[in-house]
Design a binder for these strands. Sequence first.
RNA 1: CGGGGAGUAGCUCAGCUUGGUAGAGCGCGGCGUUUGGGACGCCGAGGUCGCAGGUUCGAAUCCUGUCUCCCCGACCA
Length: 590
Amino acid sequence: MWSKSLIMTSKEAPADAEAASHRLLTRAGCIRRVAAGVYTYLPLGWRVLRRIQAIVREEMNAAGASELLMPALAPTELLRETGRAEAYGDLLFRFEDRHGRDSYLGPTHEEVITDLMRATITSYRQLPLNLYQIQSKYRDEYRPRAGLLRGREFIMKDAYSFSMTLEGPGGLNEMYDLMYQAYTNIFTRCGLDFSAVEAEAGPIGGSASHEFMVNAPAGEDKIMSCPESGYAANVEKCEIGHRDHNFDGPPTGDLEEVHTPECTTIEAVSKFMKVKPRNMLKNVVFQVQDEESPVRWIVAVVRADHDANEGKVRDAAGVPIGIAEDGAAMKGAGFAVGYISPRATIGRSDILLLVDPDAAQGMGPDGTKGMFWATGADKDEHHVKHFNWVREMGDALKDVRVVDIRNAEAGDPSPRVEGVALEERRGIEVGHIFKLGCKYSDAMGFRVLDENQQQQSVIMGCYGIGVSRTMAACVEMSHDDDGIIWPAAIAPYDVLITPLKVEDDAETMVVARDLATKLALAGLDVLVDDRNERPGFKFKDADLIGIPVRITVGDKGLAEGSVELKRRGEEGKGSLVKVEEVGAVLGIQD
RNA sequence: CGGGGAGUAGCUCAGCUUGGUAGAGCGCGGCGUUUGGGACGCCGAGGUCGCAGGUUCGAAUCCUGUCUCCCCGACCA
């Protein structure tokens, strides 16, 4: 009964809620904001989450994983073992308890579970294992946004696998493939339009990583895909097919210095110098984070209308790096911050120069004239025009490495099929599977004896699903102007029965109750809108909360022994169905 | 963390420029008329105007500080 639950719908949503899922979940009474990025899941929303969780549990269990529950609260010393107390930085919710012990709320649980495992597992005979939990996670995001899409507290299913080997039965690759299949099953059963894409594997090494993306224009992630080969990857990871490059080409004029005060952004320089960004070289400085490396800095040169890709730069350089943010340190290293050119690297053994093929061009696009380039002048508040690679770099040109270091864009050549262009769409990341390797087991000393009596690091994988985000992604994907359209598998109720008169003895109410009982006995979740409201009011609410099937019980229909059955999302008024045939129409047995 | 915006009734907002009795719509309670796509009339309850200072005879309004929230960006499973 609607009146017995807390289903509070609203005609209005906060004016600043822009994402459809945020607006509709709020209006439909599924969630309510408590603080920035923190939400109460109201009865309707919680039902959806429970259904998603049920599907997740079924598929995880079927894939051989076992459920447990770890605490959200943990001692920070665990994170110190892996260095993640620092790595997470401000993203971590941390505090001292009354005894001054440093604690944190879990953003994820690699350390907690590895701590558990190292105390519990001592022999290869106990492996492989895959353990998971469904739990609230805490991340103090810089900017929570779009309701449930990026919250500070959110529900996540996280799983961790432990294997002795990479290959073979019980190996990491098998565990990973099992999870890949389980995730595919889960999101398919949830009724989502999604794709699995290759993702940035992070600084751990060449291990694989896939993200499961719900296709939705409001998504935060950009997905590139090749329509021929089926290759799909996050833009952070997406390779670009072969592009020709050639530094040779005549200068377009004498190198000319231009005074460009206050022009530290591409946009400002472009406007000030009246040069299109595609004729400018952008020089992005990265700082090497490996103390041992003789190379301290990397200058990545891309065309100014392109974006440098940190992961590709890192892979090309072969050392851990970060975007250089410390202006003083950069100045100390001789960089004219904001006005750098490739020439800044000449004669510097501590700087590695990487150039993207599109920037490594001496000839203009028409192939007759040289390519016009503008770039920094390596002195404050100045840029140069008529930069020519051969003339300006001289002998240093032979040390320049030309390599793909930028983000892919729509229209770029596919890395898999020659002559095919990449396409772009947006997605919401709802799942991420990841081959961790030994990063955590090594850091935390989790080793077991193998069959040869040797201590060996355990190989881990981790597998996450944003459960609350999945609910939001589902609304982003499936809604119309009137409200949410829940996929049947995760709808809060299967059927909404709307009697138009609700007095206890009204015939419509009697029929509605009987029908509800009958359908419930057949295993359906049924909600009866017993509120004493006008029909139009109840229909609007019905559309808003998006139950897949609405059965309207009114005097008109009952006169011929019928009720009206309408599926959400279907045009028109639905169809008249004899009361005794409702079960059959819904595909259940009497 | 950079840029922008907002805090006034349960919700969405007006009022602030030019200081002087606290407003509307929705929602809520009562009564009546209504009843197949967010009805209508009448009556009513509900706000120390985010918080703290300051200026002033007098502050929602002006000033200072502070907290919170939202949007864009950067960053991030």
